[in-house]
C-alpha cells in the first residue's frame, strides 16, 4: 500500500473550455480530514471533481489521489474511492437489494454486511423500488453504497443539496463517523456552507476557475472579519485591507481579510467574526468593491 500524507494533491491543474478556464488550481486534502469545496454555480467545482476522477481530460497539471497518479493508477484508485453525486445513478426500477448484487460485482472489497447494516440504519427497504424513495432516501442509499467497499476517500459533488435539515444532519453524522478512521478522507463540494462550517476541517473556495482561498476552516474564519460602520466611515479603511463592501440603508459592511491586523490598525472599529457564507458572498463580489 502506498504511503501518503494527502488524500488528494492537486498541482497546477489547468483545463480550458470554450468561455471557461480552470486556471492553475492547487490544493491538498490532508489524510483523515474533510475538506469543503465551495463556490457559486459555474465556479469550477464540478469540473475540478471530474478532473480528479479522470472523467475529464486535463490540459496540464498533476493530480495525486491516495498517493497515486489519477491517470496511470486509475483503476487501483477507483477501487479505493467512492463518488457521490446529487442524483442517484441507479435505474429507478431496481431496489436496494438488487443494487447490492450489482455493486458486489464491481467492487472487489464489497461488504454485504456493511451495506445491509447501513440500509437497516437508514431504515431503507431492501425490496421497495427506488422510484418510490424520497430524495433523502435516495441520497442515503447512495451513501450506503459508497461506504460499503472500504473506500478510503469519499468525493461528493453537491450531494446534500435539496435535502431537508434532518436528513442532512443524519448524513453529516455518518461522515463524522467515517472520519473516525484516520485513513479516511472526504472532499465535499457544496453550496450549503453551514454544513461545511459544522464538519469541515479545511475549506477551498473557488471562483471563476481560480482558487481564492484554501486552508484550515478555523484559520479562514479567524482571519476574516466584518466591519459594520456608517457609510461615511468607509473612507478610513484602506482598500488593500478590504475584500469588498456591502452597502445598505443603515450603513456599510466591510469584509477584511486580516482581522487581527485591522483590529490594531483601526482601533475604534468593531470587527465581527464572520461565516463561510459571508466570506463567499464578499469574495464573489470582490471586483465591484462596493455592492448592495
Amino acid at each position: 500500500m502506498v504511503d501518503f500524507e494527502n488524500a488528494i494533491e492537486i498541482k497546477s491543474l489547468t483545463k480550458a473550455y470554450d468561455g471557461f478556464t480552470l486556471n492553475n488550481i492547487n490544493f491538498n486534502v490532508p489524510k483523515g480530514s474533510i475538506m469543503g469545496f465551495i463556490g457559486q454555480n459555474g465556479a469550477g467545482k464540478t469540473t475540478t471533481i471530474k478532473l480528479i476522477l479522470n472523467l475529464l481530460k486535463r490540459d496540464s497539471g498533476e493530480i495525486k489521489i491516495l498517493g497515486m497518479d489519477n491517470i496511470s493508477d486509475e483503476y487501483e484508485i477507483k477501487s479505493q474511492i467512492a463518488a457521490v453525486f446529487d442524483e442517484l445513478p441507479f435505474h429507478d426500477d431496481l431496489n436496494a437489494k438488487q443494487i447490492g448484487i450489482i455493486l458486489s460485482d464491481i467492487f472487489a472489497n464489497w461488504n454485504k454486511d456493511t451495506y445491509n447494516d447501513f440500509l437497516d440504519r437508514f431504515t431503507l427497504s431492501q425490496k421497495k423500488k427506488i422510484r418510490a424513495f424520497s430524495k433523502g432516501m435516495k441520497m442515503k442509499l447512495q451513501i450506503a453504497a459508497a461506504l460499503s467497499h472500504k473506500a478510503r476517500l469519499l468525493i461528493m459533488d453537491e450531494a446534500t443539496t435539496g435535502l431537508d435539515p434532518v436528513v442532512r444532519n443524519e448524513i453529516l453524522d455518518i461522515f463524522l463517523e467515517y472520519l473516525q478512521d484516520e485513513n479516511n478522507s472526504i472532499l465535499m463540494s457544496s453550496h450549503i456552507t453551514t454544513d461545511l462550517e459544522k464538519i469541515a476541517d479545511s475549506v477551498t473556495f473557488i471562483d471563476k476557475g481560480k482558487i481564492l482561498l484554501s486552508g484550515y476552516k478555523d484559520d479562514i474564519l479567524e482571519s476574516h472579519g466584518l466591519i459594520k460602520c456608517r457609510k461615511s466611515d468607509c473612507q478610513y479603511i484602506e482598500s488593500d485591507d478590504i475584500v469588498s463592501t456591502r452597502m445598505n440603508d443603515f450603513g456599510a459592511e466591510i469584509m477584511v481579510h486580516d482581522r487581527r491586523k485591522c483590529l490594531e490598525k483601526y482601533s475604534g472599529a468593531v470587527i465581527d467574526s464572520t461565516t463561510l457564507e459571508e466570506i463567499m458572498l464578499f469574495y464573489v463580489r470582490r471586483d465591484k468593491k462596493e455592492w448592495f
Binding site: L53, L55, S79, P89, F107
Partner: peptide, 18 residues
C-alpha cells in the same frame, strides 16, 4: 439509453470498472 439517462455510465467511470 437509460444507462445514459440515469447517469449509470457516468457512475461507472468513478468505479474500477473498465
Amino acid at each position: 439509453f437509460s444507462d445514459y439517462n440515469t447517469h449509470w455510465l457516468k457512475y461507472c467511470g468513478t468505479t474500477p470498472m473498465s
